[in-house]
Design a protein around this nucleic acid. Structure first.
Lengths: 111, 111
DNA sequence: TTGACATATCGACCAATATCGATATGATTG
DNA sequence: CAATCATATCGATATTGGTCGATATGTCAA
């Protein structure tokens, strides 16, 4: 269980640890964008954007929806919140109890 | 302001994005350890541990205290909590209001 | 000051990964 | 089916960053 969390935390941190991926996440917050939309806004090659999206997808930080020839991505706010809560639980136990009631998030994510 | 946060978030994510640094953080949670203590527990060279501690220090994720010839490190739980709150505010606005009251953390950190 | 110990820094090497260009896969339309 | 557009994957290259060994800096005791 703890090992699983450590792996998840590493994957989460690595997913965030790139300038362009953070930019992508910023762009994808609260909206659905196609890969080409992101290509235009970031100014890097399409293959690069796809590569980053794959990394974010592996970390479950983005959701995908196919529509016609387009694939629309958006940020997975719930997963991000869970990961942050996990970090606080692991590394800030003095704050975890009062600040981040992760249990309530987990309840809300029952699917 | 937003630019500053993005830089901070990148630094935070990069600081966490290494297996050995996560191990160090785990070891330093709630306790003060010397560099040599960490060297023994991680099984890597002292120079490597110092290098990681420098990275964590730059991200303000550890606190240092000199005592005799030893330097004792511990995890900065408050900073970690702030960074996580910042991430949720930036990338999970739908959750930020109800789950992570960052303002209360900032109040508690007034110095 | 000298010696011993603890930690930080430096230089070199190597592994991981970001990027690009080219190509393959997949979806839609005619 | 062929043509076109959108995205994913692949191979090569460049850059970043982790690691080590050696050395420098700093601290304390004799």
């Amino acid at each position: 269980m703890i090992v699983v969390m450590e792996t998840k935390q590493l994957q989460f941190a690595k997913a965030l640890a790139d300038k362009n991926r953070l930019k992508i996440m910023t762009q994808l917050c609260c909206v659905w964008l196609s890969v080409n939309d992101l290509v235009e806004q970031l100014g890097v090659e399409q293959s690069t954007v796809s590569h980053h999206l794959k990394t974010l997808k592996a970390a479950e930080l983005v959701l995908v929806r196919q529509e016609g020839k387009h694939r629309y991505y958006t940020l997975n706010q719930e997963q991000l919140t869970l990961c942050c809560g996990m970090l606080v639980q692991s590394f800030a136990p003095d704050y975890a109890a009062t600040i981040v009631p992760v249990s309530s998030i987990q309840e809300a994510s029952g699917d």
